[in-house]
Design a protein around this nucleic acid. Structure first.
Lengths: 254, 254
DNA sequence: AGCTGTGGTCGACAATGTCGACCACAGCGG
DNA sequence: CCGCTGTGGTCGACATTGTCGACCACAGCT
């Protein structure tokens, strides 16, 4: 049995390394970072380059990620059934709530944003599709951790770094937060990830009633909150959206 | 010399195959499509799955692209210098022109959209970042083919399929179109790709004065055109934007 | 010049990935 | 109900394939 293909694992490690570092990396950097021989690293990089997964700056010789990854990532979105179903509903959610709407799924130890609808005003906003958010501090992450067992263990085992003064970091407090989310059917993030920013999210279920993702909205705490709580109207809008997407996926009535 | 790593090339072929087909593919489909033994294919797929590049539907056993590709594709955008410089200028372009703005680069035989600013109204629009456009019929593609020698040979060798009745397909006509683009410094697409849709684009240069991409706008022909020509105001806006981005990249004055 | 770094090449060696037969299971039709 | 045919998946022998580390050419500093 060819357990796992070594060269592929190494290629993946190289890609992740290039994705992590802000700027381009040289051949020697890559080789030493992964503990590989230069020749080996060069062979992998050359092949990755030929396939378009990696590009090389002709003058400096440094390597960076390639365009083919963007194209394939886009194709991933096309195939994604959850995202396809959620497109129209999240659009309505952003419109009715007046805030940016997000759709996230569990990926490794975080939430991967697979859809993002801009807040419906003319402000300049950057698209966050493909970005990762922490499980322990965001509304999307808490929802996943509360309702998806896999996400729960990832969140429990992972580190809970304090991103603001309000971030929940201890295991007991975090479990209490998840318990509350399970009881209420939704989760909130009150300046626990970014100062001045709050979010609400609710789970999306598939036809087997298994949680497959979370939808939510994020916005300035002054707009999203009323006192120390999320505005009830927004909570209702998010939950309605999550139910609508779940129904589209075949989860039936609740 | 380890020419090219076979297993990596095969893995890339599998990913492209999965990206091409609309729906998920089974192990046997993949193996027969690529002419590989099932065992070999399974080994590659298993590794790709472990690395997150491929996901497997637990019930049907079919394979599809994985979330890690989206994450890496997003990282590619972060590193992309051209895109980073263009962010603010394309935003202004969309605002001043009232149309959707695009930034594209050459990738294989087409234009890869690396940035897309929605038309500034409340209509529902789908993000096209990561999508590909043809070189021979779109304004972005013509600009690249006219100014970038590599793009030119790709376009000349590639097939020019007629997407509408107005698509330029013969080699002579196409070269004339490119000559016009070089003379004017910009290119147009008057319903040559989609019925009722027109676009304008201009080239972006880097610090070595080499063309590295193209910016442009796309919109309904009634709004973008005046008679049989693009509105002069929009052409000027696109060219200004292209110059601004080029200047940001260090191309200096023209 | 000479040093030290870079990316890149080469060839020997064996670890590695490949192949094709084989297995367990599921769905279908007789 | 039972084989048939399809699926995804496993296994072990074989040799192809990728790996290693020394080596090369070049560039930028001392």
């Amino acid at each position: 049995m060819p357990g796992h293909i070594q060269s592929l694992e190494r290629a993946a490690a190289i890609l992740r390394l290039l994705a992590g570092g802000e700027r381009r990396l040289g051949l020697s950097d890559v080789a030493s970072s992964l503990g590989l021989a230069k020749g080996t690293t060069h062979g992998i990089l050359r092949t990755l380059q030929q396939e378009g997964f990696v590009e090389q700056d002709p003058v400096s010789g440094k390597y960076q990620l390639g365009a083919e990854l963007l194209r394939l990532g886009n194709s991933y979105l096309d195939v994604h059934e959850l995202r396809a179903r959620a497109l129209v509903w999240t659009d309505d959610l952003a419109r009715s709530s007046g805030e940016a709407a997000y759709l996230g799924v569990l990926h490794q130890q975080g939430v991967l944003i697979v859809h993002h609808v801009f807040r419906p005003d003319d402000s300049r906003q950057v698209l966050e599709v493909g970005a990762m958010q922490p499980l322990h501090s965001t509304a999307l992450g808490k929802v996943l951790a509360a309702f998806d067992p896999v996400a729960h263990s990832e969140a429990a085992e992972g580190e809970r770094t304090a991103l603001t003064g309000r971030t929940v970091t201890t295991a007991e407090d975090f479990e209490a937060v998840l318990e509350l989310a399970r009881a209420r059917g939704w989760a909130a993030d009150l300046e626990e990830t970014w100062e001045g920013v709050a979010s609400v999210a609710a789970p999306v279920y598939d036809r087997r009633r298994m949680p497959v993702g979370a939808v939510g909205i994020t916005g300035a705490v002054e707009r999203v909150c009323e006192g120390t709580e999320i505005r009830a109207r927004l909570v209702a809008a998010v939950r309605d959206c999550a139910r609508a997407v779940s129904r589209d996926l075949g989860a039936g009535r609740f």
